[in-house]
Write a protein that binds this DNA or RNA. Structure first.
Lengths: 177, 177
DNA sequence: CTTGAACTGTTCGATGTCGAACAATACGAT
DNA sequence: ATCGTATTGTTCGACATCGAACAGTTCAAG
């Protein structure tokens, strides 16, 4: 069951044409994506899937909070915001957030209160328990991040965070074009 | 590269009571995630969701190939590989890949051929049409990536790609621990 | 040869997210 | 006041992915 392979990384991606790319020569490691390998979007997706899955699996017994930790962290920093705004912040749809908040509320982590100036909207808040759970999970998340970025210099991590910020901004800025 | 909103990061988690954290002061822009904001995993997820969605929407009329371009690119670079290995490469489950290949095959992009040495497994190949479609979509994907990374220096992009590679390697290396 | 473990593709039920609708509410223009 | 339009939360059906099971096959150990 153990994967006794030393992780031969640094695939060079420079195989200009697709054709007789390999004859069993690459049997050892993970398959690269050829041309798409130098693309941010592709690596972004792969890394995200793996990171998200690992985090959720590691904290499987803690309910559904780990999956929605991002949302919970936003609520903690901005208590009382409307569901629409929260959905926008985590890039999910308003309709999806309904179910999610139902679950989190049922687990006793969040709370909907009618907004005082607008009878349409609810403000969303963390409960006491929610505060505690989020704080604990944020610590876990820091550990998780340390594992993700093992072997990477602090400067490069900083750069990556800045790049991701800009990517997000680019995508949010002109979504119509 | 500077964000319009400095968003006093390094939230210190010690805002004892939830209450008047902000009074409409942050009404203008997207809500940040406070403590989680400095975490790779969070930004990774946000960026990926937005990037994936934008790409898929832009190419909505081209069938389901855009969504599975990563997979198709791998098949192009490594024709004839088994479904299991492909699933592993894109970090999806074997069972998920069955449906996906059904769809792609039905759209005439891929093809399953029985593997010559092993009666259990299929080799997966691109059809002629598949080759053409993938090539065209890879060009689109490059354009898309250029949009994502507008305003970011080449060196920083390079760094980010390397960091993502390492993150992926870290996650794949010891998945059992 | 035989046998048991491991692997391959597959099916099936469960869950999560989406898009399109909808009623209730807000609000600006007339 | 009164429209028309926008927004908010919600419901509902469609679809994607998952995990657990399964039969068929490989292969090493005995």
């Amino acid at each position: 069951m153990e994967r006794a392979k030393p992780t031969r990384k640094t695939f060079d991606a420079q195989n200009g044409e697709a054709g007789e790319v390999e004859d069993g020569a690459d049997a050892g490691r993970y398959l690269d994506a050829g041309a798409a390998e130098t693309t941010i979007a592709y690596k972004l997706r792969l890394a995200q899937i793996l990171a998200f899955r690992a985090f959720e699996e590691k904290l499987a017994e803690r309910g559904r909070a780990p999956r929605y930790l991002g949302l919970l962290a936003i609520i903690r920093s901005h208590p009382g915001q409307s569901q629409s705004r929260l959905a926008e912040a985590v890039a999910l749809r308003r309709s999806s957030l309904v179910t999610i908040l139902d679950i989190l509320t049922q687990e006793g982590l969040t709370e909907r209160r009618p907004a005082p100036g607008d009878r349409r909207s609810n403000g969303v808040w963390l409960t006491e328990k929610g505060e505690r759970v989020v704080e604990a999970l944020l610590a876990e998340s820091r550990r998780h991040d340390a594992m993700l970025t093992a072997g990477i210099g602090a400067a490069e991590i900083e750069t990556t965070l800045r790049v991701l910020d800009r990517v997000i901004a680019n995508l949010r800025g002109d979504q119509g074009t």
